[in-house]
Structures are given as C-alpha cells and as structure tokens.
C-alpha cells in the first residue's frame, strides 16, 4: 500500500486503539457541552424580530454574554421557557424600575420617546403605562407591524435570559 493510500485508509478506517477512543470521546464530550450549554444553535422561527432577524435564519445563542454583566437596553436576547430547546428572541427596551408605554406605535420609556432605528415595520400599538418589576427587563420584537395581540412581548425575569445571538 502506498503512503497516501495508507493515510487515507487510516483516516477513514482508523484502528480502534485506546488513544483513538479517548480522543474521539473527548471531542464528542466537548462538542456536546459547548453546543448544548454554551453556544446553542437555533433557527429563527416567526416574524416577530423582522427585519433584524428573518424567519428561517440560523444563529447561535451565546450564554457568555451575561455571565458578568446585565442585559442592557437595545440588546437582543434569548428568553427561555422550561428549557433551552425553544426560546424567544426579543429586544430589551426597558430596564427594571422604568415605565413603559406604547402610544400610536411609538415606544415611551419614563415618559420620553425611545429612538428605535431598527424598526422598519411600524404599527399603531397602544399600551397603558406599566412599571418594569424588580429583577425584570421589558422585551419586545422589532416587527411592530403585526397586531399587538398576536405579538408575544412583555417583562421577563432576568433569570430567564439565556444569552444573545452571536451575530
């Protein structure tokens, strides 16, 4: 057997040595831990974050964003339900203690209109003033053109924020 053929054969049909099994196990375990808990792959489903994130796009949720810091206004975050298999992708628009209100589609925080350059589909939402509770942030999707009743938004506990998209 020539050298290149031997290398190819060894690559596709490796000898099951202890070293090989340990290397394979380490790579598999590292990949499981990294992509299962630290950098979770996900597909965007639905239009609530359009046009920033389009339906069908692929991304990763990086858990490390909020290990040493708190979510800030304008951050796009993932909010978990019972676990991380299905999560919400939303934008933080108000922080704890702030007052939030929608008037004719404009978002007001503590009485002042919030600049939202990412909005491409404005709507005419109206929502009376409410205060964001302690330990929570207020999250909304970027697509305000859809009816308010069908858009899932509101205040979320910080404990439910799992991280944010990598890009």
């Amino acid at each position: 057997m020539s050298v290149p053929t031997k290398i190819l054969h060894q690559f596709f049909f490796p000898s099951l040595t202890l070293g090989f099994l340990i290397r394979t196990g380490t790579v598999a375990l590292s990949a499981y831990l990294f992509f299962g808990y630290m950098c979770i792959p996900f597909w965007v489903r639905g239009a609530s974050m359009e046009p920033t994130y389009m339906d069908g796009q692929f991304n990763f949720c990086w858990r490390g964003w909020y290990f040493f810091s708190e979510p800030k206004r304008y951050d796009v975050v993932t909010v978990r339900f019972a676990g991380t298999k299905v999560m919400l992708l939303k934008r933080v628009v108000a922080l704890e203690g702030e007052q939030v209100e929608f008037r004719n589609g404009k978002l007001f925080v503590d009485g002042g209109e919030l600049e939202e350059p990412y909005i491409r589909f404005p709507g005419n939402w109206n929502l009376p003033v409410r205060q964001v509770a302690r330990g929570c942030v207020y999250v909304v999707g970027d697509h305000r053109g859809m009816p308010m009743e069908t858009h899932y938004f509101g205040q979320a506990s910080k404990g439910r924020i799992m991280g944010g998209p990598v890009w």
């Binding site: 909010v79 339900f81 919400l88 929502l127 409410r130 999250v139 509101g154 205040q155 979320a156 439910r160």
Partner: peptide, 12 residues
C-alpha cells in the same frame, strides 16, 4: 393529568 397552568413568561 389533573391540573394545568400556563406560566407567565412575558407579562404585558
């Protein structure tokens, strides 16, 4: 199944 409640993840 005896009880079911929808948890409030986002509170409008």
């Amino acid at each position: 199944f005896r009880e079911m409640e929808v948890a409030e993840v986002l509170k409008k």
